[in-house]
Amino acid sequence: MVRTSTSHPSASAWYNATTFMGTLAATDASGVTGYAVRLDQSPTTAAGTTVTQTTADVNWSARTDGTWWGHAAAKDKAGLWSPTQHNGFNVDTTAPGAPGGLVSSPARSGHRAAPTTRSPRCRSNSLTTSVRPPCRCGSP
């Protein structure tokens, strides 16, 4: 049995959606007459052998954050049940908290250029800035 979902297409991704919408797909030579379907937070629950729905659509709403598991088995016209298939989906509607361990610094208002000064070590009296290396003009 295959389950596809329009609301939670990847079983490993987390979704900010509390309603799961999907479709079951089972085939059998004699035809499928119904499905046993369960939803919980355990990955191993058996779907059972009681038909809970005859359509392939599944819709579970109001899911809380966490990993949820849909369990489904199909019943054929001969009365035989398929093994239970387990499909998980993840719900995460909680925004992350503020990062911790950060230290604030004074706000900078605009960008200021470094002050311009005359280099005392250079006889050429050339201008340098505080972010440039000292003048290497050959003068002491």
Results as ranks from 00 to 15, higher is better:
residue 112 R to L: 11
residue 49 T to M: 07
residue 47 A to G: 08
residue 121 R to H: 13
residue 17 A to P: 00
residue 64 T to C: 02
residue 120 P to L: 13
residue 109 S to V: 03
residue 46 A to W: 01
residue 83 P to V: 15
residue 62 A to G: 13
residue 55 T to E: 06
residue 88 G to Y: 00
residue 64 T to Q: 10
residue 88 G to C: 13
residue 16 N to P: 02
residue 36 A to T: 14
residue 125 N to F: 02
residue 109 S to A: 11
residue 66 G to M: 07
residue 33 T to D: 05
residue 131 V to W: 12
residue 1 M to S: 07
residue 43 P to E: 07
residue 45 T to G: 05
residue 33 T to G: 04
residue 7 S to G: 04
residue 43 P to V: 12
residue 130 S to I: 12
residue 85 Q to S: 15
residue 13 A to T: 10
residue 42 S to F: 12
residue 56 A to Y: 00
residue 95 A to K: 11
residue 63 R to Q: 14
residue 36 A to Y: 02
residue 81 W to T: 14
residue 50 T to C: 04
residue 135 C to W: 06
residue 24 L to Y: 03
residue 85 Q to C: 09
residue 77 K to I: 12
residue 121 R to F: 15
residue 98 A to D: 13
residue 10 S to Q: 07
residue 96 P to M: 08
residue 48 G to F: 05
residue 28 D to F: 06
residue 73 A to N: 11
residue 54 T to Q: 07
residue 117 T to R: 14
residue 21 M to K: 13
residue 100 G to C: 08
residue 137 C to V: 07
residue 132 R to I: 10
residue 70 G to M: 11
residue 35 Y to W: 09
residue 69 W to G: 06
residue 5 S to F: 00
residue 95 A to N: 09
residue 48 G to E: 12
residue 27 T to H: 10
residue 49 T to Y: 04
residue 118 R to I: 14
residue 119 S to G: 06
residue 138 G to V: 10
residue 62 A to L: 11
residue 28 D to K: 02
residue 125 N to L: 03
residue 50 T to R: 10
residue 80 L to I: 07
residue 35 Y to A: 03
residue 107 A to E: 06
residue 128 T to I: 15
residue 41 Q to T: 14
residue 49 T to G: 01
residue 81 W to K: 02
residue 70 G to Q: 08
residue 15 Y to I: 07
residue 51 V to A: 08
residue 77 K to A: 15
residue 117 T to E: 04
residue 65 D to Q: 11
residue 116 T to G: 07
residue 26 A to H: 06
residue 22 G to H: 02
residue 135 C to K: 01
residue 94 T to G: 05
residue 64 T to P: 00
residue 44 T to V: 14
residue 78 A to S: 15
residue 116 T to E: 04
residue 63 R to V: 10
residue 98 A to M: 10
residue 13 A to S: 13
residue 136 R to T: 15
residue 38 R to I: 14
residue 65 D to G: 13
residue 36 A to F: 01
residue 55 T to R: 02
residue 71 H to S: 03
